[in-house]
Structures are given as C-alpha cells and as structure tokens.
C-alpha cells in the first residue's frame, strides 16, 4: 500500500513526508538532527531519555519526536531556548547520576552522551555527583559491563530481546535504584541465555558495555551493523 504523503512544518520550514513516520524520522529526512540517546535505528522506541522533546505548540505540552507520528499540518519546533535549557538539564542529570569521567573511559571520543554534552554546551553541572558504588562485571571473556557508565537507555535490552531474541538483559528495581541485569541478576558469564553475539555492546551509546581489552578512547561502536541486522530481520518478518 503506497503511503500517503503529507506536509508538516519543522521550525517554520515546510517539509514533505509520508504518513506513519515519526517526527524524528521526518526531521532527519529533512536534514535536521534532533538530539536523542535512547533512540537507535532499527529498535522500537521507548521515549525514555526525553532529549528529543519537541514543541507542538498549543499550551506548551512537549512531545518526544521519536514516538510521535507526523500529522498533516503539524507545526513542530525542534529548537527553542526552553527546549535547549531542558535538554541541558537532562544531560546534567545523566552526567551526575553515576560516574562519567571521560578521561578514563574506553568510549572517550566515541560516546554519544559526551558528544551531545559538547554539542549542547554542557561544560559544567550544577548538581552534586551521586557516585553510587556500582560493580564492574568482567566475568565474560570478550565483553565487559560497567554499571557506572550506564544511562539506562535500554538499547541493549531491546536489541537483545527484539533482534537477537535472547532477552538476556532487563532492568531491575525502580527509580534511581534501577539497574541493568542479566538473567536473575547474576554475573553475565553465568547468564545461560546469552549468545555472545555482542549486539548489546555495539548498541550501547556509552562505555557501559564494551569489548574487553580496549584502552581509553579505543572503543568505537558499530551501531550501524546492529541497525542493519535489525532491518534485515524486520524485512524477513
């Protein structure tokens, strides 16, 4: 069934797109990047990081671009002083939630959180660092999980469940005490459901999931490979 073409306004500019796309996709097609962290091409969106919030007018209710479908005649504002301020606070919150010392991180230079912080000009934080005492899981041969770098975007959870079909990962607890777990909160190596495919590692936007043996700055994620795999799988279904 051919999709219906519709037009919307993004930051005042008239953009033609097709019904069924999200605002995030339509904006990207039009060459506009809306910041995001929990979104990854090929995975179901969850609207968790709130960085891609856009203003649809009418009372100031904000909507996540990643899960909001385009509608004929829609006027979307993707950037405003208010949105920028909110995005900065979100980054400040993420940076202080755990431990993000870039200089000692394998993902330094290749980290989506770091890149966004620098793009949005977050150079200092106004909140105290939480620095919870979180473990490093080195049990697996090829990969490592560092909870201190995890931002709970759940990209690993989704890629493992939806693309790989293993569902090794999930999140335990709630609120600020939420933690990424494998199987029954056991060492990763003992999680029998893991296929060792490494898709989670390639999907991780930060240095939380990484390949073993990588030194600072060496961990470059091959996110596109996972996206391709996801799209192949979708095509088959």
């Amino acid at each position: 069934m051919p999709q219906k073409r519709i037009s919307i306004r993004i930051d005042g500019e008239l953009v033609s797109t097709v019904e069924g796309k999200t605002i995030l996709e339509a904006a990207r097609d039009a060459g506009r990047r809306i910041p995001s962290l929990c979104h990854m091409d090929g995975l179901t969106d969850v609207g968790a990081c709130r960085l891609c919030l856009v203003d649809l007018g009418g009372g100031g209710r904000l909507a996540p671009a990643c899960t909001t479908p385009v509608q004929e005649g829609q006027a979307v504002i993707t950037n405003s002083p208010r949105l920028l301020a909110y995005r900065r606070v979100i980054l400040e919150l993420l940076l202080t939630e755990r431990n993000h010392i870039c200089s000692v991180c394998v993902a330094n230079g290749n980290c989506e959180l770091q890149a966004l912080a620098s793009a949005l000009g977050v150079t200092s934080v106004r909140f105290p660092y939480r620095y919870p005492n979180l473990p490093l899981d080195l049990s697996r041969d090829r990969f490592v999980l560092d909870q201190n770098r995890c931002i709970l975007c759940t990209r690993c959870v989704r890629v493992c469940a939806d693309v790989e079909g293993a569902h090794v990962w999930d999140v335990k607890g709630r609120g600020i005490y939420s933690r990424l777990i494998s199987d029954l909160d056991q060492p990763w190596a003992s999680a029998a459901s893991c296929t060792d495919c490494g898709k989670c590692v390639q999907s991780c936007p930060t240095g939380a999931l990484a390949e073993k043996g990588k030194a600072v700055e060496e961990m470059v994620k091959q996110t596109w490979q996972v996206t391709n795999a996801a799209e192949r799988k979708r095509a088959v279904l």
Binding site: A48, L94, E97, R174, G175, S178
Partner: peptide
C-alpha cells in the same frame, strides 16, 4: 514519588533524586 518513580525516563528518575537531595 522518588521511591515510586519507575526509573524509565531521565527527568523523573534522576530529577526527583536531585530535588530530594
């Protein structure tokens, strides 16, 4: 609300923690 927050979205999960602080 801090202890009842599900932890999914950043403003509620981390923001309430900072507010409580």
């Amino acid at each position: 609300t801090h202890s009842e927050s599900c932890g999914k979205c950043v403003p509620c999960r981390v923001g309430l923690d900072k507010a409580l602080d």
